[in-house]
Design a protein around this nucleic acid. Sequence first.
RNA 1: CGGGGAGUAGCGCAGCUUGGUAGCGCGCCUGCUUUGGGAGCAGGAGGUCGGGGGUUCAAGUCCCCUCUCCCCGACCA
Length: 496
Amino acid sequence: MRRRAPCPGRITCAPMTSAPDAAPGPGAKGALTARATDFPRWYQDVVARAELADNGPVRGTMVIRPWGYGIWERLQAALDTRIKEAGADNAYFPLFIPEAYLRLEAEHVEGFSPELAVVTQAGGKELEEPVVVRPTSETVINSYFAKWIQSHRDLPLLINQWANVVRWELRPRLFLRTSEFLWQEGHTAHATRTEARDYALKILSDVYLSTMQGVAAVPVITGHKTVRERFAGAIRTWTCEGMMGDGKALQMGTSHELGQNFAKAFGIQFSDELGAQQYAWQTSWGVSTRLIGAIVMAHGDDFGLRLPPAIAPVEVVVLVVRDDEGVHRAAQSLVADLVAAGHRVRLDDRTDTGFGRRSVAWELKGVPARIEVGPRDLAEGNVTMVTRHDRIKTTVPLGGAVVEVTAALGGTAAALWAEAEAARAARSTAVTTVAEALEAGAQGFATLAWSAVGPEGEDRLAKEAITVRCLQGPDGGLAEDGDDEDSLVAVVGRSY
RNA sequence: CGGGGAGUAGCGCAGCUUGGUAGCGCGCCUGCUUUGGGAGCAGGAGGUCGGGGGUUCAAGUCCCCUCUCCCCGACCA
């Protein structure tokens, strides 16, 4: 990487004086808990100190603060573009669902009933028919699909909605598990099983994998869930599983083949080309604000959050080091140049607050690049650039700062990706027995033949809080329709 | 629901054993000096001690009741 090398055109290339081992310890003022010391505590600290979110007044609820919501908006934009490219249109369905709808699909209601919030009183009186707050919208949406779909010409029907959903949680964790969260849920109906399956896989790769890996720079593995782990009401659940900094897996998104389960429950039928009545084949798929938690836990370090530029609400912050007219002028014009170059920029000219405090604040928030404009550098026509992911400081000529920042931002995502992938590789082990999987799975991902596990092995693993995260084909790719169960590979580990 | 803990300033906590003026750190406000990695000094604001009852001359502290929250055991984006 150019910035590390002694570099012509620059005056100095210095790493920061405080190496990672100079991380603030427990005694330091306002320090973060070290990630290796207590990962859950570190996570909470980062979420709080980076001002991503607060706990809501009702247990399990979450207030998403502007910085956290800014990340969500960037993720949303990336996902929404891809969803539309996949042909789905946005729509909106109601928050309240008749309780009776949930009961129409047996597995579905069984899967969700423990976490339903049910409204029994409204308008000052008991409701004759209780309504549930949607935990997901299969039931309402499909009841309308049944009305809208009459002919094979109405298919495929591809709908997405951005919404909040409620699943009452006993053990809440900000972004990862809250009683209310924001997500996107897609619901589609197709004429054939193959078409539905292909669409579920298209979403998995072209929307989810593309966003998680290409935008958020989080490496994920894909595969399908075991019967035990799959979505209530699906015939197959495809999943994206990321590995967090402590070796635990996080389910970051799922895409389901629903078969004809809901079509039969809700009467979604169409006349085919021959005039015969057929039940539609369906999919549903979703990702949520949990992705923010994934980004924190996959990329964060002892100094706080680290964001890939594509989802950072601010890509570059220009810091006025001290109150000086020339410095202010230079900083302002640099901001203008950066904006003109297409970057999301913020000017920090709060010189009534100490420089160190402001630096630390932006570092905690994970802003990918900072430019420090101070009189000392400026006297020599320079500014200092700091890249967040490696915390390396570089002195660059003022006139070349835009080019330098653009180049640095271009390398940030790749660097974060490489680091996360190396961490995952270091915690991934191939094993052959359930006993070995118990050990390796406690540290990270253990891979072994599914035939060596099976539903019985799954129970054994579950006693140690280890689950099958996904099943893959013999070559490590997605399983093909014709694959023999015994040829599959299981990836197991602890999870959030 | 079973087991373990905690409620005192915005946040984190001490004080309770042995009742006697409500404290500390961080944060916040004002002023001055500062500002190139969490600044210093001085001054200041901020409290129904979770709630109710009782004992006592006197309760954050002792007794009874009650509420809430957190952590560990069965599900999930």
